[in-house]
Design a protein around this nucleic acid. Structure first.
Length: 296
DNA sequence: CACCATGTTCCTTG
DNA sequence: CCAAGGAACATGGT
């Protein structure tokens, strides 16, 4: 589930549910998601602490807590990896098979589950310091974006996944933003023209903003659809509603006609990740400075 | 069995 | 410092 929009929707959903709640106990079932924090350390820090805030940075969830009897806030950092979920359930509800960490909140429990255990729930907040600008904030200017891009000869698609360049863009929205900006994914980052940089900045924001708006209309409570929390399903996932895939114009559409020109969409592999694009609409040709970019 | 998967990090080699 | 490739993490879906 995790790219910036999914995390944003989750944060908005979770914030009012956790704020004000006090942690009575901590159960760690998979220590690796805490590292380098130890289970013992997490338990000592969180027991008795009260949630005072929840925000997002890139794809990270940032929980703020007030430890018992203290004034200095405590930061708990979460990440969903590829398959993580975080939600509240009644105390007596059965735990999912891959529950990694469970926080006892009294009547309810906060569950972080993750079948692949790629995600995190830790006191180690160093990852936040390495983040680039928030794409939806004022900090994300095309001047700064363009200047940063000139330092790399790597393909633009690969650089879009670099969280130090811009925070929160993942594999799906990288392809989507490039398609809308009509930029070939193979184009070296430093080769983007000014117009292309501006277009890409705009389509990144567009794609993320639309996804957030769209996601916010999705039922956020578990129990409704299937497999727990009905937040964002993707593609062929169980119970996947195509409301998600309908939003995607190129991702996972290999061989299907481009929505602009009918040319079959291609799939290539870059840095060991799938990239989808239209070979006609997204040209790597000369004159990148002249490239016009409009959304389809 | 094979291949694929929304992510990040670390490692090697150049 | 950068590039490119790979592997690792671990599980599930098709």
């Amino acid at each position: 589930m995790p790219e910036l929009p999914e995390v944003e929707v989750l944060v908005r959903h979770l914030r009012p549910l956790v704020c004000g709640r006090t942690i009575r106990g901590v159960t760690v079932r998979r220590a690796r998601v805490l590292a380098p924090t130890s289970p013992d350390q997490l338990q000592r820090s969180l027991r008795g602490a009260t949630f005072t805030g929840l925000s997002r940075r890139g794809k990270y969830l940032v929980f703020e807590l007030r430890p018992p009897g203290k004034r200095v806030p405590l930061i708990l950092v979460g990440h969903l990896g590829m398959t993580g979920r975080m939600y509240l359930t009644p105390r007596n509800a059965p735990l999912p098979k891959h529950a990694a960490v469970v926080l006892n909140l009294g009547r309810e429990r906060f569950v972080y589950e993750d079948p692949r255990y790629f995600g995190r729930l830790t006191l180690d907040s160093r990852a936040l310091a390495r983040m680039g600008p928030e794409p939806l904030s004022e900090d994300f200017t095309s001047a700064a974006f363009g200047a940063a891009l000139t330092r790399f000869r790597q393909a633009i698609k690969v650089k879009l996944l670099d969280q130090a360049l811009v925070a929160g863009v993942g594999n799906i929205y990288a392809s989507e933003a490039l398609f809308r900006a009509r930029i070939a994914p193979q184009l070296a980052a430093r080769k983007l023209g000014r117009t292309q940089v501006q277009a890409l900045r705009r389509t990144i924001r567009e794609v993320l903003t639309e996804a957030i708006r769209f996601g916010s209309t999705i039922p956020l409570h578990h129990g409704e659809k299937r497999s727990g929390d009905g937040l964002f399903y993707f593609g062929r996932a169980a119970g996947a509603a195509d409301y998600y895939t309908e939003r995607l114009r190129v991702y996972d559409r290999k061989g299907l006609p481009c929505l602009r020109c009918q040319t079959p969409i291609r799939r290539i592999v870059q840095a060991a990740r799938s990239t989808f694009y239209c070979p006609v609409c997204q040209k790597r040709g000369a004159n990148p400075n002249q490239t016009q970019a409009k959304s389809v």
